[in-house]
Write a protein that binds this DNA or RNA. Sequence first.
RNA 1: GCCUCGGUGGUGGAAUUGGUAGACACGCAGGACUUAAAAUCCUGUUCGCCGAAAAAGCGAGUGCGGGUUCGAUUCCCGCCCGAGGCACCA
Length: 925
Amino acid sequence: MEYAFRNIERKWQENWKASNAYKVSNESTKPKFYVLDMFPYPSGAGLHVGHPLGYIASDVFSRYKRLKGFNVLHPMGYDSFGLPAEQYAIEHGIPPAVSTDQNIATFRSQLDKIGFCYDWEREVRTSDQEYYKWTQWIFLQLFDSWMDRKLQKARRISELMANFEVEGNAANPCPGEKNLFFTAAAWLAFSDKRKAEILMQYRLAFCGIGEVNWCEALGTVLANDEVINGVSERGGHPVVKKKLRQWYLRITEYAERLLAGLQTVDFSESMKDMQSNWIGKSFGAEIDFELDLVDAPAEGKKLKVYTTRPDTIFGIDFMVIAPEHELVASITAAEQSTDVSSYIDYVNSRSERERMAEKKITGVFSGTYCKHPFVDRKIPVWISEYVLAGYGTGAIMAVPCGDERDFKFANHFNIPITNIIGSFYDGTEANPTKEAKLENSGFLNGLLMSDAIAVALDKLEGLGIGKRHTNYKMRDAAFSRQRYWGEPFPIVWKDDVAIPLSSAELPIVLPPMTDLRPGPDAQGPLANLPEWAAYEGGTREVNTMPGYAGSSWYFLRYMDPNNTDAFCSREASDYWGQVDLYIGGTEHAVGHLLYSRMWTKALFDLGYIGFDEPFKRLVNQGKIGGDSRLVYRIRGTKQFVSAGLKDQHETDELHVDVSMVDGLDLDMEAFRKWKPDFAEATFITEDGVYKCGSRLEKMSKRYFNVVNPDDIVERYGADTFRMYEMFLGPVEQDKPWDTKGIEGVHRFMKKLWRLFFDVEKGAVLTDATASDAAWKAFYKMVKKVEEDTARFSFNTAVSSFMIGVNDLTDLHCHSKDLLAKFLVVLAPYAPHIAEELWAVMGQSGSVLDASYPAVEEKYLLETSKEYPVAINGKTRTTLNLDINASQADVEALVLVDPIVMKWLEGKPPKKIIYVKNKMINVVLG
RNA sequence: GCCUCGGUGGUGGAAUUGGUAGACACGCAGGACUUAAAAUCCUGUUCGCCGAAAAAGCGAGUGCGGGUUCGAUUCCCGCCCGAGGCACCA
């Protein structure tokens, strides 16, 4: 009987489906375990062999946990809102809802073939009304919340209003408009509209004016990655910054908690680093400098700068403010006004891309000076684009001897440089050290810079001219898109005031549209439906939410997917709690992962869930690269030359479909039939074989190197495919796909099969118990597989299976008692064959719910060990010793060993090192 | 420039705590079975030296150069290369 994997896999997939084998209940006495995959965006291209890597890893782990007695939640769904479907609709006239459904059907059939243990009754689709109803609902909660900075906790807007009525906003400074202060009396006197404006400045989901990439030719707003070098990726049209009303999430209010929370989760160092770099926390001071105005109109104003190095305050040679700084106009001296306005024009003419691409040193003197607080020195104020308006205060104090950018600027404009660090500064480049002793620094003289920071801060605070201040690089997250295929906002505009709709009205259904042209005035396509937008004397918000809205909370919906009264019941989220294991790619490091962490914290603050970090552990699977095949056409001909001979000709390199190549050998007939262009191709071969070139690159349609998992499953079976993906290398590592290598795993499956069946004789199972040697080989394998699975070292677990099967084959082990246990250990990796053989053996129930065999240590006990014997650290021989041998026993035996004696040449050894259970090392004199 | 992770045979990779470097596979070479093929099985396979060959032996060897140690792929110092992320953030 042969290993008929196609029949076996089809049979069990149908069987498991019919018996609801993967249904997960929220009621269980077992401990819970939640394993989550990053759900896919259902693109039109379908899955290639790289995509399921993480899914297989999580599937193996889920099944392993189930066998170990856990109630395992392992769901799957689709992140089905997004740009590509909308683009596809514009180009092909197929509505996003339709193409998305088609794509999901394709994904589902591909996933099903691999035999995952998903509970499909819990599937979520972010574009489903029943799902996005709750996305809209959570948006309303964010809209109705503000961050109480003292409590570091989101609270309801009503509580904020109550507070304003009693004490104004003194205790709760405005995060949106930093200079806004009012008393309780003032608050009560404000108009309703003014009150709404002020509250908007506090809300966690808020509307403001922001810059977007506007492309006039396409009539649309583009995302940053759709803009390449200042022009649109599609069509190459110019893109300008345009100010538009936009929705935002006030994620900056969570900066501190997002940073602190990283210490409580098990993410890779690089992942944590990426997030903390993105948050970009820095400590420093805001310092006010008095302006010494010549004839400019900024009477009484001060220049506020942000610095992380207040210790260098005596090294200030000039100030720089951003061209967008609010003081630019008012501090410009009359004689400089022409220069300043032409500089501002120049800056405005440059796109952000240009500014980033060519970092020229540019700037202009404003004509105004500042007073130094401690020395009698006039400090010129310059305007330059190297200072960013959006960070800190948009103004800096420049210390050229300690800062590279300031140094270059000073050099370029011939500004004299003050040295405050003595020999640490050599006049040719800035030195950003903190280790120097300060000179020329008044009250800081003689102090180590790192110590002087606190001294300077105390002094500045004492004088009331400076304040300790923490800054973050992170910006609030833009939350609206001028697009169709996303969640509509549950917001209506009346008299420029945003009014939230009541949750009873949810979902706000996305109206069907076929023509997805952008609306007027840079609005989304929904603006073209005035009858939809009209709402009781107001107008609906016509922009939609971004792709990350739905994915910021989907892991909660899986816990309670059919709840019509809540996004997820508190009982369900209390039961399942945090995601214990989250597997996905690194591309979501700062987007999805930060947003979902923020949403979780907000829902926690508002009391809807009981945990404030969503993912306890994150594993990032690597990417599987494609192994491309190349052919070489002799320029200007239809003749192709084999790779080994290509250097003798002038050739052009072309990608050829990997399915027409066996190893490196091209199927020349298939190639001629591939494209009409190649019908008359002729070949210069090497001994009749055309050898292709190869290159590792991204798996992509355009390189013809995409391998479809369907084909692999058809040829080798799902179990082989699963095991091979795991065998390829560490999950977290990038690695190339090599279809040839799968043969080895497939051979292993067949070899395993032969422990149960002989081709001619049929079943070869015996009732006799296995030999001690077989048990030993088996438990050695179980121990290793279990350890490796638990630490996500799936590749070494697969090789342990191979070693185990090789050993059991050599030992002719066909014992039922042993092999039944074997199947349980194998089931997470290769569930179909395990279930089939389990049934064949007449075991009761399903192998999915068997219990994981405990390692019987008695079979693993050793009485002796083959010790390596090294001479001066280099292994020269081995010696079989009793496991309890003493140092004296060992020395006696080692000294009479012929090989050791040869090396000793009659002289006594200097030392004999014996490490029990490890090795022996003889050190020569 | 800064941060993180990597660099081991022809290839993917293993070596979990400083203890036999190259497990397990792929590929390749040779062989058995077969009319033949497939399938299966067996043997060999880091490089170099010695040798007719085999066995045995010797030398080198985990990106490079140093160091610590009886012993280093593993720890320390200094470089080189690759991947990813950030990037005028004061």
